[in-house]
Amino acid sequence: MEVYKNQESQNPLFQKIEQVRRRSNKIKDTHINLSHGSGGKAMRDLIDDVFVKSFDNPILSQLEDQASFDLANLAKLGNRLAFTTDSYVVDPLFFPGSDIGELAVNGTINDLAVSGAKPLYLTCSVILEEGLPVETLRRVAASMQAAAQKAGVQIVTGDTKVVNRGCADKLFINTAGIGIIPTGIDISPSNIQPGDVVIINGEIGNHGTAILIARGELELETDIESDCQPLHDLVSEIIKVCPEIHAMRDATRGGLATVLNEFALTANVGIRINENAIPVREEVNGMCEILGLDPLYLANEGKIVIVAPKEKAELILSTMKNHPTGKQASIIGEIIPTPPGIVLLKTAFGAERIVDMLVGDQLPRIC
């Protein structure tokens, strides 16, 4: 068989075919068309030239319909698997501080991180609208790979679909993620107890504000950028000093207010937060006042809300402030026994008001 292969490789016709194949995996179209989702040669060229080239790693290079892993190696990292999925339809695709590609990677990483898991592998499934510039897709894929490399994860499998012009808005991304939860870590809102404290790692509302400004519908100018960033390294440092963290969640759609209400309802406790302790940029507050919005409900893509035992609060806070993604960390509230299921805000004027669940959607398509 080896002799046959060697003879075959010397055949001029065989060499010509190999040369054509090597050239043909370079996509020549400038815009996505329906053939790129047909399952044929055009689709294979798109996948090879854009995604395989960008995400290159030993698992992805197998080009199987699935990615496979050695369970023995995974088991060395912990005793439970964390698995999540999310879809990204943000408009516009590129905005101050980030883009849909980086957002998809970091958002999925953070969904794993808040369980205490170490993120390892991601998928990437894209829905492309006919007419999307190929260069836009390359830019998004490159951004995803840069974010994945920075976070130490691999994009190992995926899927590509193309829909007719007008049936989608340029580009949608779905990602799934797998991580391993270390033995002994049990983070859940059901663990929350009266007397616990609420901590956040920095300013709220920056992502929602950046998206709103980027849409160009308002004549507002600001240098605010999205806070899109991976949080798993910060979580790892927190768990080292306080493995008994009670609850943890990233405040994305619905913002800080929604996360706190979910905590209060799940644990059947009250939560009191202090308006003066919540980090908010002056520009974000100003925009909210102009538009009648509330920064408590604005989306974030790099903010984590933690509920922990009071006696560990200062240790956690100092650990967070020593990390690049937690320098503005603040203790913003406490868990109280009553009223159960209610979040109260102590305002800057000393009064109290109820912070309810978000009704409707302040800003659609922000992630």
Score class of each variant (00 low, 15 high):
residue 145 Q to M: 08
residue 90 V to A: 14
residue 212 L to S: 11
residue 295 P to W: 08
residue 362 Q to H: 12
residue 237 E to P: 08
residue 159 D to P: 05
residue 191 N to Y: 01
residue 208 G to I: 01
residue 111 D to E: 15
residue 62 Q to T: 12
residue 164 N to H: 08
residue 271 I to S: 01
residue 337 P to E: 03
residue 98 S to I: 06
residue 94 F to R: 14
residue 292 G to Y: 08
residue 259 V to I: 08
residue 103 L to A: 08
residue 258 T to G: 11
residue 223 D to A: 11
residue 320 M to G: 01
residue 77 L to E: 13
residue 188 S to G: 07
residue 102 E to A: 14
residue 113 A to C: 04
residue 165 R to P: 10
residue 98 S to M: 02
residue 115 S to L: 11
residue 172 F to N: 10
residue 241 V to N: 01
residue 146 A to H: 15
residue 347 T to W: 07
residue 293 L to E: 07
residue 258 T to I: 09
residue 327 K to W: 08
residue 219 E to P: 14
residue 297 Y to G: 05
residue 49 D to F: 12
residue 81 L to K: 07
residue 138 R to F: 12
residue 49 D to C: 06
residue 200 I to F: 01
residue 252 T to S: 15
residue 128 L to R: 06
residue 11 N to V: 06
residue 278 I to F: 04
residue 196 D to K: 03
residue 245 I to E: 00
residue 128 L to A: 09
residue 181 I to Q: 03
residue 250 D to F: 10
residue 179 G to S: 07
residue 80 R to D: 15
residue 261 N to P: 02
residue 257 A to V: 04
residue 198 V to A: 01
residue 304 I to T: 00
residue 220 L to G: 05
residue 81 L to W: 06
residue 74 L to N: 08
residue 314 E to Q: 13
residue 192 I to D: 00
residue 240 K to A: 13
residue 354 I to E: 13
residue 278 I to L: 05
residue 251 A to V: 03
residue 168 A to P: 07
residue 308 A to Q: 00
residue 262 E to Y: 10
residue 55 F to H: 11
residue 343 V to Q: 00
residue 204 I to T: 02
residue 121 Y to V: 04
residue 112 L to R: 06
residue 67 A to E: 04
residue 205 G to V: 01
residue 283 E to C: 06
residue 89 V to N: 12
residue 159 D to W: 10
residue 329 A to G: 02
residue 197 V to M: 02
residue 181 I to H: 04
residue 60 L to C: 05
residue 328 Q to M: 10
residue 145 Q to W: 09
residue 343 V to T: 00
residue 205 G to I: 00
residue 37 G to Y: 12
residue 209 T to D: 14
residue 367 C to F: 15
residue 364 P to E: 09
residue 46 L to W: 09
residue 148 A to Q: 00
residue 205 G to L: 00
residue 97 G to A: 02
residue 256 L to D: 03
residue 280 V to D: 07
residue 36 H to N: 05
residue 124 C to T: 14
residue 300 N to V: 04
residue 169 D to P: 09
residue 240 K to N: 11
residue 317 L to E: 00
